[in-house]
Design a protein around this nucleic acid. Structure first.
Length: 589
RNA sequence: GGUUCCGUAGCUCAAUGGAUAGAGCAGUGCUCUUCUAAGGCAUUGAUGUUGGUUCGAUUCCAACCGGGACCA
């Protein structure tokens, strides 16, 4: 079973020291983090600085008392030192502690980094949000990649997860598409072969026509109205659009290598729930009728304007559909958290949604979160399908595969399964590009940045993992005890072995202990880029080690097996981390 | 017009009140007879402006300059 993280260990030390000094009431405002400069130790706390402000006492004095109190606790040899420096309390873990953790990683394997924090709790994650009859482009990547990562992280922490694409399959745009389909007579043969692109072409063409001839909009709207009213022909066509799109989404899901979705509950699914939702809001006296007959919830007093549910022409808005969605999920899944992974253009909408639900008596501001994403744009401006400034997901993946394959031909021409590996590498580059940025940052897409294979990239992490496996492979081939080792691992250092390690080896050990707490952090603040940063730093550290210290050439058997254990554990952590990012870890590349 | 987000090195980004503002790319100089050079080592280079709060500000507050988004 997952064991206590080292951060928790430090946290306990600090709590008991503070409770000895009768200062526990301040515990929740304190911070324990790995310091920016590792010379200060493995963990630092600002406890004395905070307390000095609250109690108006010199920070050094408080820090000294806390340090003394911690030194009076039986540390079982887990700490090398705890010291006060510039008001901070710095903790340095002992070699014994670090080696113990190394054993833990090797024992837990794929489970290192998992916890049971989320046991018995359900989290609903909505992401991808693809639109029917439109091909996804690079902008859609973010929601799906970050959503997939968060889903994996939640699962690793023991949460029950429910994923839903919440596809866009309803609205006036289907009126436009239906009208286009009927009047522009699509080529049925092309439609058969490449339905989504063909439907999208129709939609784009009709949108342009409407822009030029405004009166056509009413005809399109009428088609949507007929669809809403259950017109047989329109229903049939709409169903065709949806079916083809679902097939297409599944193709992309597999191409992207993201986990299967539990639900594809589109906006149309909530259609039938809308009258009762509207009735409920009306009963709660939240609905106002506007000057032109529209129905809205007045949120002016919260600085949020009006939340329109039914337009003056009687058409429902996606606000109303989102109310229905929330209520359905609440009833159906009994979630602890309901997360929407959507770009920040929807921020206003979600504020309105949550506030309105609060007014209706639901705790939406607490149990629901809009995980807002900065949206992606191109150097020349916004991505727009209609203006033609777009890069389809399909082209992106194709181009990435091409570039990855070329690099493999170049660097490792003897590799056996080049095609398969190049796909893994290509996806790593694409996904890591999105995941490694702060999710709120508005990224500017360029081919060379998005498909980079050097430096702080997915392929760099994969490469680090692969070259470690190169050593392990060779080691297996060189020794007769490989069969045994495979099961038991390499001989481990016992507590009595007082080997002295190089700095670079200790740096790797120190980095390895941080993994579980980084994963836990992501499950709490939803910033996968911190996991990327961590894995990048770990890789840099182990690559320095790789350069500096020979493993297989080492003649001291004790040291050699320590190093084999060290790299085994590192490869394991990189692999576990990459898995959480949704990236594969090939053993050769 | 109202609301909101952003401005960090030549470029793309980290740092969500902490210690000397970190990376990658690009540039410069080393480094493959050796476990994969997709690597390693060294080096150049930055917080839009002006105030304020704080022991401590890229981070919080105010104003201004510049850019995006949403609502109308």
């Amino acid at each position: 079973m997952p064991s206590e993280t080292s951060k928790n260990f430090i946290n306990h030390l600090l709590s008991s020291a503070l409770s000895g000094l009768k200062l526990t009431s301040y515990l929740d405002v304190l911070d324990i983090t790995p310091p920016s400069n590792p010379d200060f130790g493995d963990y630092s706390s600002n406890a004395a600085l905070i307390l000095s402000k609250k109690l108006k006492i010199n920070p050094k004095e408080i820090a000294g008392k806390i340090v003394d109190a911690i030194n009076n606790i039986d540390l079982e040899g887990k700490l090398e030192s705890v010291t006060e420096q510039g008001g901070f309390i710095n903790f340095k873990l002992s070699q014994k502690f670090l080696l113990n953790n190394l054993g833990t990683i090797i024992d837990q394997r794929d489970l290192y980094g998992c916890s049971v924090l989320g046991e018995g709790k359900t989290v609903v994650v909505e992401y991808f949000q693809n639109n029917v009859a439109k091909p996804p482009h690079v902008g859609h990547l973010r929601s799906s990649v970050i959503g997939d990562c968060l889903l994996r992280v939640f699962k690793s922490q023991g949460y029950k997860t429910i994923s839903d694409t919440h596809i866009g399959d309803w609205g006036v745009q289907f009126g436009i598409l239906l009208y286009a389909f009927k009047t522009m007579k699509p080529d049925m043969e092309v439609l058969e072969k490449d339905p989504i692109n063909e439907l999208n072409k129709l939609y784009v063409a009709m949108s342009a026509k409407i822009e030029a001839q405004a009166e056509l909009r009413d005809l399109a709207k009428a088609e949507f109205k007929k669809l809403e009213d259950g017109d047989e022909q329109n229903r049939k066509l709409w169903q065709l659009f949806v079916d083809e799109s679902l097939k297409d989404f599944e193709r992309y899901r597999i191409l992207l290598g993201v986990l299967p979705f539990d639900y594809n509950l589109g906006e149309s699914f909530y259609e039938k729930h809308m009258p009762e939702v509207l009735a409920e809001f009306q009963e709660k006296k939240l609905i106002t009728k506007g000057e032109t007959g529209e129905l809205y919830i007045d949120l002016e007093s919260f600085g949020l304007g009006r939340c329109i549910l039914v337009k003056s022409d009687g058409a429902t808005t996606y606000h109303l559909r989102d109310f229905a969605t929330y209520l359905y999920r609440r009833k159906q899944f009994n979630f602890l958290k309901n997360l929407y992974i959507v770009d920040n253009r929807q921020s206003h909408h979600f504020k309105q949604l949550f506030k309105s639900l609060e007014l209706a008596g639901y705790p939406a501001e607490k149990d629901s979160t809009h995980i807002d994403l900065g949206f992606m744009s191109l150097p020349e401006g916004a991505i727009s399908t209609r203006k033609g400034t777009t890069i389809s997901l399909e082209n992106l993946i194709t181009e990435a595969n091409k570039r990855a394959l070329k690099i493999i031909e170049d660097k490792n021409p003897d590799l056996e399964n080049k095609e398969a590996v190049s796909k893994q590498v290509a996806l790593a580059a694409i996904k890591y590009f999105d995941l490694s940025h702060n999710r709120k940052t508005e990224i500017i897409f360029t081919w060379d940045n998005a498909l980079s294979f050097e430096g702080n990239t997915g392929p760099y992490l994969q490469y680090t993992h692969a070259r470690i496996h190169g050593i392990l492979r060779k080691s297996r081939n060189n020794t007769e005890l490989n069969a045994e080792n495979a099961e038991r691992g390499f001989p481990r250092l016992s507590a009595s072995d007082s080997a002295s390690f190089r700095d670079t080896e200790l740096s790797v050990l120190r980095k390895l202990i941080q993994f579980p707490e980084v994963v836990t952090q992501v499950s709490q603040d939803y910033f996968p880029n911190n996991l990327c940063n961590y894995l990048f730093e770990l890789s840099q550290t182990v690559n320095s080690f790789y350069q500096e210290v020979p493993v297989l050439a080492e003649t001291d058997e004790t040291l050699k097996s320590f190093r084999l254990n060290l790299i085994t554990a590192t490869a394991q952590v990189i692999k576990n981390g990459l898995y959480l990012l949704g990236i594969e870890a090939p053993e050769e590349m």
